[in-house]
Design a binder for these strands. Structure first.
Length: 479
RNA sequence: CGGGGCGUAGCGCAGCCCGGCAGCGCGCUUGCUUUGGGAGCAAGAAGUCCCGGGUUCGAAUCCCGGCGCCCCGACCA
């Protein structure tokens, strides 16, 4: 239950976040180091995220399957960059049934290896391609520093793994999924993102190309919110994934993988949340509207509840995800604050005065306090609430986009870049060399986020070294 | 791995220096009054004082050893 106030975001953003996750009832700390328990309210939010994505993947021919949590440790040795990238983060099972295991088993940190192994058994002919499989589940990475949702040892996600006959087709798949991720962020989560390839040094271990979507949090730090990778034939060669083409020639597959994790919940919190607590976009909110009946005695209660029950049924019939807060042991004021903490988009208050006047009070979560309150007729309330939900969804995206764009600057020179990334993002030409990227990181802690697609066909000079450059990149401090 | 802090009721903490009935606030339970922006009063329940050993008539407190957690820095979705 929510109690007491949060620190404001300006006072202590990290502490604001930590307390909010607990007080909004999304998750709790587990007894295992670095792990979280996702509570029912947080999981309901996650289910709304996953059900949209799942439906979208299925539209483009993807199917779901499940692979084991445990992976033979030797599998990780097969791809050089992959083993280097993930070895430090592996949890390893050494005993089973009281006996020491002959071969140690890793708890999956990601499933390219075991899925690659299976694909090599399943794929024989060009007729078997493409293979488009998604796994929903959790993975485990032994993280040093953890934070609920943003970086926990175990986290939830989907991982898509696809195999194709040609590089073009695999690249197309990578970008198709990236588009789906962008669409999800914009339309469902109301979070604007930039999409495009990552730099060499920021690539996924084993990938030829890693693309990402990048979002700006309230504190102006960047959060990589989804990734889509093109592996070329790296994993196909490591796991011997081959098929006979139409000319009876043996070919290696081209593979991809891609993921959005429960981290996206952290993004929703840090993009939309305010000093009152969580603010959820209506399309993802587990509870879109809450009804708070207000009364002073039994006689009033009877009258108010009659209206409240009728309104509840009307809104429910209109398909609104709804909650009646009929708790008798807390005051109305407490309830207001409680539901604001949990980010419910619309609150419907019904008291004795409303019963008299045929009205209700509507409070919209994206505008806290008196400003967001209005008194509307009980007639046609379902339509009123539905249009308000749509308006909140739109205005959250608009507000987040304006905020982001106001905090991205194009540096005049390197000194300017160093200043900008202290409190915002810099968008600048970059020669795509690791040296320049590393220099920025050492000087400022900012990293390259991605090279956004759809850039104008112009040339410039690398902001660091001055060499000619064709593409601009975002520099930002990241989570 | 380097630096700092902490471990006492569900949560947040005081008590420790200077050994002597285990406390405070919040939360929880019950009752009454309350309810349009975080209600009040009353009565209750709730403890392996992180673990192990030692000193002592007596240890939350002193000594030795261990474990765990959090925060800040280099790596990561």
């Amino acid at each position: 239950m929510a109690e007491e106030k949060l620190p404001t975001r300006a006072e202590d953003f990290a502490e604001w976040y930590n307390q909010l996750v607990i007080k909004a009832d999304l998750a709790d700390y587990a007894p295992v180091r670095g792990c979280m328990v996702v509570k029912p309210y947080g999981w309901a939010l996650w289910e709304n995220i996953t059900s949209w994505l799942d439906a979208e993947f299925k539209k483009t021919g993807h199917v779901n399957a499940a692979f084991p949590t445990l992976i033979p440790l030797s599998f990780f040795e097969k791809e050089k960059e992959h083993v280097e990238g993930f070895s430090p983060q592996l949890a390893v099972v050494t005993h089973g049934g009281g006996e020491e295991l002959e071969e140690k088993l890793a708890v999956r940190p990601t499933s390219e290896t075991i899925i690659g192994y299976m694909y090599s058994k399943w794929i024989k002919s060009w007729r078997d391609l493409p293979v488009l499989i998604v796994q929903w589940g959790s993975v485990l990475r032994w993280e040093i520093r953890t934070k609920l949702f943003l970086r926990t040892a175990e986290f939830y996600w989907h991982e898509g793994h696809t195999a194709h006959a040609s590089a073009d087709e695999a690249m197309e798949e990578m970008y198709r999924i990236l588009d789906t991720y962008e669409e999800f962020c914009l339309n469902e989560a109301a979070i604007p993102v930039f999409k495009g390839p990552k730099s060499e040094s920021e690539k996924f271990p084993g990938a030829q190309i890693t693309t990402s979507i990048e979002a700006m949090m309230w504190d102006k730090r960047a959060l990589q919110s989804g990734t889509s990778h093109y592996f070329g034939q790296n994993f196909a060669k490591a796991f011997d994934i081959k098929y006979l083409d139409r000319n009876n020639a043996l070919q290696y597959c081209e593979t991809t993988s891609w993921a959005i994790s429960s981290r996206i919940i952290g993004a929703i919190i840090m993009v939309h949340g305010d000093d009152q607590g969580l603010v959820l976009p209506p399309r993802l909110a587990p509870i879109q509207a809450v009804i708070v009946p207000i009364y002073r005695n039994e006689a009033e209660k009877a009258k108010v509840m009659e209206v409240a029950d009728r309104v509840f049924q009307e809104l429910k019939d209109a398909g609104i995800r709804l909650k009646m807060d009929d708790r008798d042991n807390v005051s109305s004021g407490f309830k207001f604050n409680d539901w604001e903490m949990r980010g419910v988009p619309v609150r419907v208050e019904i008291g004795p005065k409303d019963v008299e006047k045929g009205s209700v009070a509507l409070a919209r979560r994206d505008r806290p306090g008196r400003e967001g309150k209005s008194f509307v007729s009980q007639d046609g309330l379902a339509a009123t609430v539905n249009s308000l939900l749509a308006e909140i969804q739109t205005s959250l995206l608009q507000r987040a986009t304006e905020y982001r764009d106001a905090n991205i600057h194009e540096p005049k020179d390197y000194e300017d870049l160093k200043r900008i990334v202290q409190d915002g993002w810099a968008f600048a030409y970059w020669c795509e060399s690791t040296e320049c990227e590393t220099k920025v990181k050492e000087d400022t802690k900012a990293t390259t986020r991605n090279i956004p697609v759809n850039q104008p066909d112009q040339e410039g000079m690398c902001i660091v070294c001055g060499r000619p450059s064709k593409r601009k990149v975002y520099f930002a401090r990241a989570y």
